[in-house]
């Protein structure tokens, strides 16, 4: 019951969704459309799980574990500030946009920008032409990098064309093969879900 009921629900819904794609039926199509809209609402409601976990974890750190208390307090203050101001003013208010642009945008983009520095260090340490395959990878990477920057054209006028050729031809072939492989994998996963063999997504909580 604890496993079979959720599996049955997934199977029925999957079959309905796939049937909706192939069949034009005045009963089936509106039903699936409304079902999908209902799931959108449920997905939005599920955000609360993450919120509760965040609050629980940080309150735990402040009261019980006593590690990084200042940082956890800052997490909760930042969370509360955005929730309270958003609830009072609304998400479209210019002052809320100001908070978003001042706090979230710089932090989010800087966290990802850090990876640029680490990629540079990793490229320097790991990008070694140890074999022919590694050499091809290195060469393609270098040509594409030069082709994308204006200096590539200054160094050699054919660099942008060569870079574009790598993107248009060998890269297209490689990516196309990978995408087709992913599609086959997705199909086999769906068949496993429909037949009830795939249970990984039913991992329970605490």
């Amino acid at each position: 019951m604890k496993i079979k009921l959720p599996l049955a629900i997934t199977t029925i819904i999957l079959v309905l969704m796939v049937a909706d794609y192939f069949v034009k039926d005045p009963l089936l199509n509106p039903l699936v459309r409304d079902l999908t809209k209902a799931i959108l609402i449920m997905t939005a409601c599920a955000v609360g799980i993450g919120v509760i976990r965040l609050i629980k974890l940080n309150v735990d750190r402040i009261t019980v574990r006593k590690t990084n208390r200042l940082e956890s307090a800052i997490t909760l203050i930042a969370f509360a500030a955005f929730v309270i101001v958003g609830a009072i003013l609304g998400s479209g208010h210019p002052n809320y946009a100001y908070m978003f642009n001042t706090i979230i945008v710089p932090l989010d983009s800087t966290m990802f920008a850090l990876s640029g520095f680490y990629m540079a260090s990793a490229a320097y340490r790991a990008f070694r032409a140890r074999s022919e395959e590694a050499f091809v990878l290195l060469l393609a990477g270098v040509v594409v990098m030069l082709g994308q920057a204006p200096v590539g054209e200054v160094l050699w006028s054919a660099t942008p064309s060569l870079s574009q050729w790598i993107m248009d031809v060998p890269n297209t072939a490689g990516v196309r093969a990978l995408i087709m492989g992913i599609a086959i994998g997705m199909l086999s996963l769906t068949i496993r879900m429909i037949t009830g063999h795939e249970k990984g997504y039913l991992a329970s909580g605490e």
Binding site: A123, R125, L138, M145, L146, A149, V151
Partner: peptide
């Protein structure tokens, strides 16, 4: 452009 040249230089130096 400058950053790309630096990285390519570092990769060449490393190799």
């Amino acid at each position: 452009s400058a950053a790309h040249l630096l990285i390519i230089g570092l990769v060449i130096a490393g190799n």
